[in-house]
Design a binder for these strands. Structure first.
Length: 273
DNA sequence: CGATTCCCCTGATAGC
DNA sequence: TGCTATCAGGGGAATC
């Protein structure tokens, strides 16, 4: 599923369409459009001024003070096509651009959203203002992480998935981060030591940077804008590894549910706090 | 107000 | 083989 590294990979690839105009939009899944499909028509004739990312949100700034905010949820991704012909089976939306490129949006489970907004309202409407720290920004220091976790209680993994604390981490990278930091995902955050926070801070940066470098994790359907798989799934050490042997100690990996999410970990290497 | 549960949706997989 | 049941999961809404 697209998390920070996957969305970042898409954003980087999509820079080739900055400066192009949106000439037409087709969609067979009107429900994805917020506030409604009719709003999509406001984007016609608009020029793409920039494409950026905040957490797992992809933000198109357009001329006329318009903004399109895309969220991939589970299975969404953009594809750059040279014609209107769908590159994949589950293309739900297609944007015809002024350079002849068709920006296609694939989304098997129809969970993704496309929000049409104005420049001065999008941060509030899409709840970007409620998001936590960007973990790959310079502002993500050890002190900033500790400040964000201050007065928080609960299981470590549940907090890592909470977008209002640290933004952009999903189920895959949360498991990888806990494994990297040698922390049990069910550890109570109020029990973490200074050394634990150091390890956690380092693990968050290492795992997300590795994900970006590998152009994302392909489990199921995620691909980049050219339809190519990421490489990060080839070096996962925890996510979906339950039942397999731990790469560090050789013991069998366990699984449990945390925050409604399947969580894999090594009970030997990852001690509970 | 915070924490938990439900829900959206459909392909893959397991079980019979 | 083919059917049904279960699972996966981000985040918003409803509920506790």
């Amino acid at each position: 599923m697209p998390e920070l590294p996957e969305v970042e990979t898409q954003v980087r690839d999509l820079q080739v369409v900055v400066g192009k105009k949106i000439l037409a939009i087709t969609s067979d899944t009107h429900k994805a459009w917020k506030p409604n499909f009719a709003a999509s028509q406001q984007l016609l004739g608009k020029k793409i001024l920039s494409i950026t990312r905040r957490a797992k949100y992809l933000i198109f700034k357009l001329s006329g003070e318009m903004v399109l905010v895309a969220h991939f949820r589970m299975t969404g991704h953009f594809l750059l096509a040279k014609s209107a012909k769908p590159l994949e089976r589950f293309i739900r939306h297609s944007f015809q651009l002024s350079n002849g490129v068709f920006l296609q949006f694939s989304d098997i489970r129809k969970f993704a959203t496309l929000t049409v907004c104005t420049e001065n309202a999008y941060q509030k409407v899409c709840k970007l203002v409620e998001l936590g720290i960007e973990p790959l920004e310079k502002s993500f220091t050890l002190a900033a992480l500790q400040q964000a976790f201050k007065n928080k209680k609960g299981m470590l993994k549940a907090l890592l998935l909470n977008q209002t604390i640290v933004a952009g981490i999903g189920n895959i990278y949360a498991d990888e981060i806990c494994f990297n930091a040698k922390l049990h995902p069910a550890s109570r955050v109020e029990n973490l030591t200074q050394q634990d926070f150091k390890n956690l801070h380092k693990a968050i940066q290492q795992e997300l940077r590795k994900g970006v470098k590998n152009r994302g994790t392909t489990i199921g359907e995620y691909v980049d804008t050219r339809g190519k798989h990421g490489k990060n799934q080839l070096s996962l050490r925890a996510y979906k590894q339950h039942g397999k042997l731990c790469g560090v100690c050789g013991k069998t990996m366990q699984k449990m549910k945390i925050s409604q999410r399947t969580t894999s970990f090594c009970a030997h290497c990852q001690q509970k706090r």
